[in-house]
Design a protein around this nucleic acid. Structure first.
Lengths: 212, 212
DNA sequence: GTCTATAGATTGATAGAC
DNA sequence: GTCTATCAATCTATAGAC
């Protein structure tokens, strides 16, 4: 066979994921993507319809499974707590969000690029890209907001929402920084393993969320 | 006089600040900037030399004064503590960073756009823009890192650096979200006042930083 | 300093052969 | 599905008149 190891559509997704994450949506041209994916310039429009549809597909491919994993972990936590009628622990709820993310990060090299892309997509200035991302995370966001309200019933909704946003911000920021030069500490660079990162994140996020 | 109320250079800075913040560096063309600033297309290259130099100037104009204010507040905190030989309080160090930022936010409408731009610049995919921003915040970052090491001598440098990054992430995220639709809570939107925001931020950040 | 005009390059998208 | 060729629109930057 002279066909490449994986099909064109997959190669386009992998390449676009990496390039969008590293250089941004607007700075990455279809020419660059198709060249590096060893595909024809017209391939993106044939397989996806447009550059924006390609970005949407890049997000969807990984966000689907990741959010499913988060949802299942959260359900476990809630079931264990609601079997009795106790509230879930804040730390367990946070772990149900963070741990699948970090575990996901170790799946393959592309996943790491993807998380970099996610970290950047919230702050993305282009409204098409940002809205596409927000649309895909809104359901899981609301699920965790509700779980946290069970864990911390004494907090007003305003304070809880604000703290959830701080949490998301901290998490996304740390997924962005590792690939960057300069300010980021070497221990947090690309090769940092998930267990270590989780040990750094969980105490900080839990303490912040439970602050008086 | 038929000359406009403020000179062209200022109008270009104001307009670029707003458009870069709202739509991003790459999605904002010199044509759009000069049109909205009621200046000629060639004006940017005459006054600044290039589009990138314009961005650099936009960042410099506000980051200079803001960082000076942060530095002075930090010096006060350190002086009060070191006059005796006590360590500064973590909360006071954090407040020295956050409060000038929020106060700055109320100065004028442009400042609010600027903080949105700052929130986006850390995660910016374009390396020129990101590097330009990081270069301008690195000194103040190191100053606060040192102050926090005085406040929390029991933390290892790795943990402290990680937590400082989480803090920066939470702060920048919340400066980005307010102008966005969808997920952000209405209370955190554009019109949220600084005192309220400070009351939300400080307990969260302090608790996270001081976590066991 | 401000303007017009344009160079020079790059972009996303598509038509049509194979 | 893949390819070539190309369109039409965009962009930054600059040269040169006023």
């Amino acid at each position: 066979m002279t066909t490449p190891p994986i099909d064109t559509k997959q190669r386009l997704l992998d390449t676009a994921e990496r390039l969008f994450a590293m250089n941004g949506f607007h700075s990455t041209s279809l020419r660059t993507i198709t060249r590096e994916a060893q595909a024809n310039l017209a391939a993106v429009n044939y397989h996806f319809g447009s550059k924006e549809a390609l970005m949407e597909a890049v997000l969807e491919r990984r966000l689907g499974p990741l959010n499913t994993a988060r949802e299942e972990r959260l359900r476990q936590v809630l079931d264990e707590a609601a079997g009795g009628e106790r509230s879930p622990l804040c730390r367990d709820v946070l772990r149900a969000f963070v741990e699948p993310t970090l575990r996901f990060r170790e799946a393959d090299a592309g996943a790491r690029y993807f998380l970099l892309l996610v970290g950047r997509s919230v702050a993305e200035a282009d409204s098409t890209v940002r809205q596409s991302f927000l649309r895909q995370v809104k359901p899981i966001f609301l699920l965790f907001k509700n779980a946290l309200q069970l864990a911390l019933p004494e907090l007003s909704e305003t304070i809880l929402l604000a703290r959830l946003h701080f949490t998301i911000g901290a998490l996304h920021h740390i997924m962005c920084m590792p690939l960057q030069t300069g300010i980021a500490p070497p221990e947090l660079i690309l090769n940092c393993d998930s267990a270590f990162m989780l040990e750094l994140l969980l105490p900080y996020l839990t303490a912040g969320m439970e602050a008086p």
